[in-house]
């Protein structure tokens, strides 16, 4: 049921039955390492190209998810997945081997919430019994598509972020299936907000206004206050983008300190790991939610979370043509039954 301007209330409250996460070497050295299911030391993951490696990250993540439930691929009705690569080849080649009907999604780094939103609406409507939402990103495949060759000796801007090598996935089922788990109660798909930022090395600033807009709209539509949630987690605004978001809320008289967390800011130890403003990429929110926040929900350390994956919808081509960076953010409210 649609409530307010753009929020959907899922009256059948689909459940996240299980999640799975896998991370690369740099994320393994980060502060959240212990929460991830699988840690891979080899950036190539035994493959010959970075693109194949990223596909394998996602495949291993989904296989792990299926074994955790446990269930078989043929029992999955639909899979909603996406990544950052052109034509979403990572997801395409990964799911080729799984034999599951597939919706390929692109929302840049906002894809995880986009896929989780669609998976949960399918379950809510009764069109499916088991849906998977998955995304991935890989530092090396992203660098070569969006930035400079890896071995090129250049300096990064202090506002730059580092694409996370990781994949995360979640399986969504109707409320009464399986063991107890966190429920998806609302989704707020976001609008594109573009404040004219053209600097590809400052994505946090480009996406923060979109996150602000989506969170604010969500709170208005659901008539909730920000502190209704234990945590409002954004995807990859990074250190600078998070500061901007908190500032924007302050201007509206809402204090987000203590409530807001950002997956990109959490995943690395910025000073030691030289990651500047933090992590980014589709795999950032996917792995941090699937690993860290899902664990916190399961152990009831937090009971209400709003996850807001943020994306920058540009390409190197559009930037070279002088276009600014359109930002987007999708919100998903996940709550424990209390």
């Amino acid at each position: 049921m649609k409530i307010g301007k753009q929020t959907i209330k899922l009256e059948n409250t689909p459940k996240i039955l299980q999640t799975s996460s896998i991370v690369g070497p740099k994320e393994t050295q980060g502060p959240l390492s212990q929460y991830f299911d699988k840690h891979i030391d080899d950036i190539f993951f035994g493959e010959t190209t970075f693109e194949k490696a990223e596909s394998k990250f996602m495949k291993t993540c989904i296989d792990n998810l299926l074994s955790k439930v446990p269930t078989l691929p043929e029992n999955i009705d639909y899979i909603f997945a996406g990544d950052l690569l052109n034509q979403c080849i990572c997801s395409g080649y990964c799911i080729r081997d799984l034999n599951i009907p597939f919706f390929g999604l692109y929302g840049a780094c906002s894809t995880f919430c986009e896929s989780l939103s669609l998976a949960s609406t399918f379950i809510n409507a009764g069109y499916a019994q088991k849906c998977i939402a998955a995304t991935s990103s890989h530092f090396c495949s992203a660098e070569r598509q969006f930035r400079m060759p890896l071995e090129h000796g250049n300096q990064k801007s202090p506002t730059a972020q580092c694409t996370v090598t990781a994949s995360g996935s979640a399986i969504v089922v109707p409320k009464d299936v399986g063991t107890q788990g966190p429920l998806i109660t609302h989704i707020t798909p976001g609008k594109i907000i573009d404040m004219g930022i053209t600097d590809m090395t400052n994505m946090g600033a480009a996406m923060a206004p979109a996150a602000f807009n989506t969170i604010m709209t969500h709170l208005q539509d659901t008539q909730r206050s920000a502190n209704y949630y234990d945590i409002i987690a954004t995807g990859d605004l990074g250190v600078l983008g998070s500061e901007i978001l908190v500032d924007l809320f302050n201007k509206e008289g809402i204090d987000l300190n203590g409530i807001h967390a950002d997956c990109g800011a959490l995943i690395y130890n910025h000073d030691k790991q030289d990651t500047h403003c933090g992590g980014s990429g589709c795999g950032c929110m996917a792995s941090v939610f699937s690993g860290y926040f899902f664990d916190q929900l399961k152990s009831k350390k937090i009971n209400k979370i709003l996850i807001v994956a943020t994306g920058a919808l540009m390409s190197p081509l559009s930037i070279q043509q002088g276009e600014s960076i359109p930002g987007i953010a999708h919100a998903v409210a996940i709550e424990n039954e209390v």
Binding site: T159, M195, G196
Partner: peptide
């Protein structure tokens, strides 16, 4: 509560500039 930022693109970019680490 207002979900739109009451800033022009120029104002926002000046604000970001002042906030960003040099």
């Amino acid at each position: 509560m207002n979900s739109n930022i009451n800033m022009s693109n120029e104002e926002y970019s000046t604000y970001v500039e002042s906030k960003a680490k040099k």
